[in-house]
Write a protein that binds this DNA or RNA. Structure first.
Lengths: 193, 193, 193, 193
DNA sequence: AATGAATGAGCATTCATTCAT
DNA sequence: GATGAATGAATGCTCATTCAT
């Protein structure tokens, strides 16, 4: 029960930000969900912005770390890519609130989070770029594709599938099936012939 | 100069919403940019929400129409897909404000625009799905890819490229080059072998 | 149809002010009811305040005149009083909008009608005072009652009955019966024994 | 000084509503008079309407209670009526702000206070009706007078005197003398001969 | 550290009034 | 005279943040 108060606030903020969006989310509501007083939040975070940034900075860390762990288990870039896609969609399925934040709020954070650049997000994207470069080095992937563009293409594709699933009320869509389809398209698309 | 006042407000709103985001955008600022009085906005629109919705509903129409026009000029689904990608990124380049809105704000609009479903956006997505189905019928594309998933994959890829370009301050990236790369990946990915 | 435009506005204002109250009444609504343009109202009246004041000043005139006419038909102050009560409640029944204004809005007009003193209303009250003085002179009424207080007591009594009737949705109450009861109480109350 | 903040706001609202009227009263002004911040008012009351309704609901209670207390000290309905009249005018004299509200604003409250029926006011009126019925049962008052009409006649008379006194700038009029005159008229008017 | 009542700057919206046609 | 689109000052209410306890 008496888990770390800071962590409780962070979890509550993820839930409320994901549900209501940054602007419609009320600090008092976050406090209520976290079961702390409003003022307590300001003992652990500078302000509402800082709370949002902290979510990205701190909650993305274990996600990225976990992803890296999974990827090291495979040698081929092709396998790594498959794992990445599956892994990402698993994450979405397991942490839909966090997913919602990453997808929607992060994209416009630069608007309201004064000068925040979203470094963790970039780190995450970089993983894809690195896999692709590895794939090119290992002669698995075509040379005429720019890794920087590829990472955006893949992330965009996966993210759109995720967004759609997140926004769908019923959640009847099978993310595993979608993952397979994405891999089918992208892998053939970049494979060295 | 003295164009339709309604249109002037709409254009101003696009600019301000794109720059500041829906919540940080001030109605008074929109009025200032449109060079009308604050109250005038409420002669043409119910409220701030309605202004946002009207942008999507009315400004997306010519965009979709223009896209459809371009597509009819080609027979093969492959060519249509190439055109779609190029066309979309051209649009982004020519109407960066509108692009920004479509990419970011629209995605979270369901949050604050009470029950707004974004039908125009769906129409836009449907175009891709239809091209893909045509491609399958014309034996250009693989049969084992679900058109509904494909439309998301392609849109997600293109949109991510667009988002990245939109958010980049310098705009040094060549969207035309990106378009070529996306086509290179996706078309080989879905081509019937 | 094309009656005097000024009169049409005045009648519309009575209706709308009575229905909505001075503050909730919109000038545009008055214009709509009068079937004129908003700006036209300002050709005939200084502003919203002036419109309200003009109602009292001009619409009360015929009412007072009519009352005076009826009263001259009787000699005895007792009869005059009975006529006054009946006549006033008749007026209420026939001009409920005007009645509503006199009862409610006039009482607080000093609040929002800068320095308006309601002279017509005072004239109306004076009629009662004059009848009472006559009654005292003609030895019909007690001498120990102050005419100024009496006029308020009678008007208050009649007005409260009227207010209650006006506010009642069903209007089932018979104002004629009420008039008889008021007369019964007041006349015996002031009669010289 | 540091009395209950809610009470302070209520008192300030009575003063400002009485002075300026409901519509001209500014929430910020009420806050200033109550010596609290604007937002504080909304911690204790839903909105401006609720503030007005709360005044009637909560401030009328002790008034009615006090009136009832005074009335139980007398057996005869005649005495009760005299006490009621004196007591009411005393109240007006001691709480002129509250009186002003009851007289003027309450009457039109149905206009702006969505569906508010003013139950406390009716309770107050019922007291008079009950005294009159008692007087009829105790053979003090005439049988041919409808108690429901009588309560309006008496209240109207007393209220008009009160309104006049409230609106008079100088307040030179002696309410005690007026009370005696009202009693003189009404009591003889309803007395069983 | 924790609380939550209090703060007050900030903003969407309204509507009496004006004025170009 | 008549119009009604345009104006913009004015205000109720919200909510991130503070601070006395």
């Amino acid at each position: 029960m008496t888990t770390d108060k800071r962590e409780r606030i962070l979890k509550a903020a993820i839930k409320v930000f994901a549900r209501d969006g940054f602007f419609l989310a009320k600090v008092e509501e976050i406090a209520k969900v976290a079961d702390v007083a409003t003022g307590t939040i300001y003992l652990y975070f500078e302000n509402k912005d800082d709370l949002m940034i902290s979510i990205f900075e701190e909650e993305m860390l274990p996600i990225i770390e976990h992803m890296r762990q999974e990827l090291t288990a495979h040698e081929s870039a092709t396998d790594k890519l498959i794992v990445f896609i599956n892994q990402h969609l698993n994450l979405i399925q397991d942490h839909p609130d966090m997913a919602q934040l990453m997808q929607v709020e992060l994209r416009q954070s630069s608007k309201f989070l004064h000068g925040y650049e979203g470094t963790r997000f970039r780190e995450y994207l970089a993983i894809i770029g690195d896999i692709f470069k590895l794939g090119q080095a290992q002669k698995e992937f075509r040379d005429d594709i720019n890794p920087s563009i590829f990472k955006q293409v893949l992330f965009g594709a996966v993210d759109q599938i995720a967004t759609n699933w997140t926004l769908s009320k019923t959640k009847r869509i099978h993310l595993a099936a979608s993952a397979q389809q994405i891999s089918a398209i992208i892998l053939r698309g970049v494979a060295k012939q």
